[in-house]
Nucleic acid binder design. Structure first.
Lengths: 139, 139
DNA sequence: GCGGTATATTCCCTATAAGGAATATAGATC
DNA sequence: GATCTATATTCCTTATAGGGAATATACCGC
């Protein structure tokens, strides 16, 4: 039964937070990591778990792995994701995460917020690396 | 987060089948057992699991424990139960279970199908339970 | 090739889940 | 009281999950 696999994915708090974030569009691992404030291993493992069960899809972009909700989710999956999104409004952590995501996206307005861009070569003109290197997308 | 507890309850096939049955109204353990074709320990343990997390409520009626969906479920719970019922249509086992439940209820029409009634003293006055010779436990 | 970054995997430990066999408990009847 | 029935709990084993530390892999730029 496919349903139980879906619910297995949904019964961990970190995974719910990840899925909530992905509702806003695709994201690379480091952004998820930063928003959740969780260690890399933890985030990566939960993403693998979700991926193995078809709850997320992924593409590689240079160094970054960009995760998203599946392109053509099954009926069960989309029903449950919709239900989750609905329920998420009643639990503050999801709202806080989404707000953080919004701020993160704002930092990159213009370029899509799909990767960290930390350390993407700062065009030698710019000011020192104290502030987060402001960057253009690495392509 | 309450949500994860709900999903923990939903990520086992047997528990999903039980919840699906309870959508049709309250049921005693032996009926659930009979419909699912699962051993008593298993059913009882899953019911305990659901009860401990507030997914089902229970009342005692003589020897029988009669389980039902909660009377005033939280928003998250009712949303997810509705979603489950929706998804259940896509997985045959739920339909089969419901059909069995229907047949079982038909057997007891008039009296509510809340307990096995095996061995419930037939008040010597009454119209006997028709053809059914004072049933022994159906198993 | 080298070094750096982003992410995944492995190894290890602990916690929880699932199932069955056996036993315990609560209520009913006598 | 004893006995029966319906259900719950305990004990045990095996499987899976979740987390962290360390390590491996994949890609980039030089």
């Amino acid at each position: 039964m496919k349903l139980t696999q879906i619910y297995q994915c949904l019964c961990d708090r970190t995974r719910l937070r990840i899925l909530n974030l992905l509702h806003g569009g695709e994201l690379c691992v480091c952004h998820i990591q930063e928003i959740l404030g969780e260690p890399q291993v933890k985030v990566s493992k939960h993403l693998s778990y979700l991926r193995a069960r078809g709850l997320v899809a992924v593409r590689r972009k240079a160094n970054w792995m960009v995760y998203r909700l599946p392109d053509r989710p099954s009926g069960e999956l989309s029903a449950n994701l919709a239900c989750l999104q609905d329920c998420a409004r009643e639990t503050p952590v999801f709202g806080r995460d989404s707000a953080r995501l919004g701020r993160l996206k704002a930092k990159f307005e213009g370029s899509s917020p799909i990767c960290c861009m930390t350390k993407v070569r700062v065009p030698q003109s710019s000011r020192g690396r104290a502030a987060r290197p402001r960057a253009t997308s690495p392509r």
